[in-house]
Design a protein around this nucleic acid. Structure first.
Lengths: 170, 170
DNA sequence: CTGACTGGTCTGGTCACGAGACCAGTATGA
DNA sequence: TCATACTGGTCTCGTGACCAGACCAGTCAG
């Protein structure tokens, strides 16, 4: 769909935001970016997304200034820009909403403040420091519990152990 | 798509949430619910959405426990449940993100705390009270500025003046 | 030079969406 | 009492997005 997904006449910034970030897969791609995924092939393996759609979404996100595309070594890196990082509160609150109100057959991921080790509360605040830490200062880990059908790609494997957000992954 | 939008293997509550709330139009429907829209016909007039899709989205939201469907007088009312209201932080933060990082040719909507009259900050907090007010205690208004192509349905007309969130609209 | 790896493009079938015609139940008014 | 309008839908058909998988081009290692 690219830009102008049919929400033009809404005259509303929620609609504008959804033109960039509201398409199928986009928020999951960004979630992976926060986890530290940077390469085309890793997105492909971790999300069950088709190549064509992944290409299109990455292009849209780069065009919108949410990701930066940077050739590197053998390959290409996609990195969150400041605008991209600013989406963290949205992603976190939607995740927490799902955890609270929707049934799921898998353990949630927990975010903790790297400096003091406390788990964040529902609003993303560190209960010890009282502040909302920067995403780069968070560690994700999987809560205890059995996942019925765990994935087995390289990204999923790294994410079984605690991992510092935004640091390169596999 | 209904439930099971193809994100099943993600084992992640963000994906679960997106199965309910991540399809085209859904968040805009919910935005309208927060504004106080309750009737099929008003959603239809305010969003440029097709009848079939609107029907399907409302059904999905009711099935997921986000909206409640209640026959009333002549017609039917769709009301936010507690789970539905809990989506406000997500919608607000995404809106604010769009306002800050995306170009738009229209004035933003501003939310203020009804009790003390202060405009909310970026995190949805009332700078005077220091707390995050309940959505029901907010008033929306349109910031000053010209909208290039304003809408002219009944809902849009009411929303030109300040309006208490969640109170019935047209 | 060859083979493997990465980041793609292209294609063909399927499924979701948009527009608009149609319809059923309930009030309302003459 | 019957015609009319209003509300909340359903149905159909054409178009476009998505998925799976084949294919491809550039680059680096051996």
């Amino acid at each position: 769909m690219g830009l102008g997904t049919g929400y033009e006449r809404q005259g509303c910034f929620l609609a504008r935001a959804l033109e960039v970030v509201g398409e199928r897969w986009t928020l999951l791609i960004l979630r992976d970016c926060f986890y530290g995924v940077r390469h085309f092939g890793d997105f492909l393996a971790h999300l069950d997304i088709s190549r064509g759609v992944l290409t299109e979404r990455l292009d849209t996100l780069v065009a919108a200034g949410v990701l930066e595309r940077r050739p590197q070594g053998r390959g290409v890196e996609y990195l969150l820009t400041d605008a991209g990082r600013a989406l963290w509160p949205t992603i976190h609150s939607l995740s927490k909403w799902g955890e609270k109100y929707l049934p799921g057959h898998h353990p949630p991921r927990v975010f903790s403040h790297a400096q003091c080790g406390s788990d964040l509360d529902e609003d993303g605040r560190c209960p010890t420091c009282g502040l909302v830490p920067d995403v780069a200062d968070l560690v994700v880990r999987l809560a205890k519990g059995r996942n019925a059908t765990p994935r087995d790609d390289p990204v999923a494997q790294v994410l079984r152990r605690p991992h510092r957000m935004l640091t390169p992954l596999p």
